[in-house]
Computed example of a mutant assay.
Amino acid sequence: MSRFVGKVAIITGSSNGIGRATAVLLASEGAKVTITGRDSARLQESKDAILKAGVSEYDINSVTADITSSEGQDNLISSTLQKFGKIDILINNAGANIPDANGKTRTEGGIDTFLKMFQLNLQSVVEMTQKIRPHLAKTRGEIVNVSSIAAGPAAQPQGPYYSSAKAALDQYSRSAAIDLISEGIRINVVQPGFVETGFSTVARGLNAEESSKFYNTMGSLPHCIPVGFCAQPEHIASVIAFLADRKASEYIVGQTITADGGSTLVLGFHANFGQKK
């Protein structure tokens, strides 16, 4: 396939997981990509994965940067323009459920943790959208924001700050989509459920073997993931690519696609009474 030939994409949070899988997919289908993350070693692993997919090194722009800093955001955009001359696609994938520095959990988490959560999961997206807007207007480009099923409507008492930030991201995305569509810029959202990236196990302090066991267990429980298995990053990357492909999804504007194997349909009452006997 070559649906992204001639396109230039920035994928934030692409040093691992969904971001890495998305960068590999877009690049393997013709896009020139800017990959970025704070960990240079893991970012190199992403670059190696893209090269392994048969992509020329010339088509990869690797930038070690903090997406929450103005300098990092500016560097992403300016280096992409310098190397590739334009920007067609922005994938705002960077995000995290940041552990509280003092070990506080749930609603007892510190306000500093709350602020950091919103800075990464929402503010960085707002700032990148503002800064990249004139460049995407020139190319009639696409923005795909990566949210989470934690955004609701089900309550998330174990992570209220993260889930609130993602819920705010969803509403911002809807509002921005209507504001920018007149300039030809499309914005849509992907809400992943459980994905085997380590995201859901880092805060629990699990090692690689324990993490794999956790995801396998979740996938085996029909009241958690009805489809019967936990998603791999590539499952979510394919949904992101669909929304980034103007030809395939042109009439989809400001919408949220939930990719969770059915998890959000079996919460609460349905967890006990909605399964086949």
Rank of each mutant, 00 (worst) to 15 (best):
M1H: 02
F4I: 01
G6L: 05
K7Q: 06
K7T: 00
I11G: 01
T12K: 09
G13N: 05
S14M: 02
S15F: 06
N16W: 09
I18S: 00
T22K: 06
L25I: 10
E29D: 05
G30F: 00
K32D: 04
V33Y: 02
V33S: 07
I35R: 04
T36A: 10
D39F: 01
S40C: 01
S40N: 08
A41V: 11
E45L: 14
K47P: 00
D48I: 07
A49E: 13
I50T: 05
I50H: 07
D59R: 07
S62P: 02
V63Y: 05
N75M: 13
N75G: 06
N75K: 12
L76A: 09
I77R: 08
I77T: 05
G85S: 12
I87Y: 02
I87K: 00
D88K: 00
P99N: 15
N102G: 12
G109S: 14
G109W: 03
L115N: 14
M117S: 15
F118H: 15
F118L: 14
L120V: 06
L120H: 01
V125N: 09
V125T: 15
E127I: 08
M128H: 03
T129P: 07
Q130H: 06
I132K: 03
H135Y: 14
K138M: 08
K138A: 12
G141V: 03
I143M: 14
G159H: 07
P160R: 09
S164I: 11
S164N: 11
A165T: 12
A165S: 15
A165N: 11
Q171K: 13
Y172M: 12
Y172N: 05
S173M: 09
S175F: 01
A177L: 09
D179H: 15
I181F: 10
S182N: 05
E183P: 00
G184M: 13
Q191R: 14
P192H: 03
P192A: 06
F199R: 03
L206R: 06
N207Y: 12
N207L: 15
E210G: 11
E210Q: 13
T217V: 01
H223D: 03
H223K: 05
V227S: 08
G228L: 02
G228I: 09
G228T: 09
C230M: 08
A237Y: 01
S238I: 00
I240H: 01
A244L: 01
D245S: 03
K247F: 04
K247Q: 12
I252L: 13
Q255V: 10
T258C: 07
T258K: 08
T258W: 06
A259T: 10
D260S: 06
G262V: 11
G262A: 10
T264N: 02
V266K: 07
F269G: 00
N272Q: 10
Q275V: 11
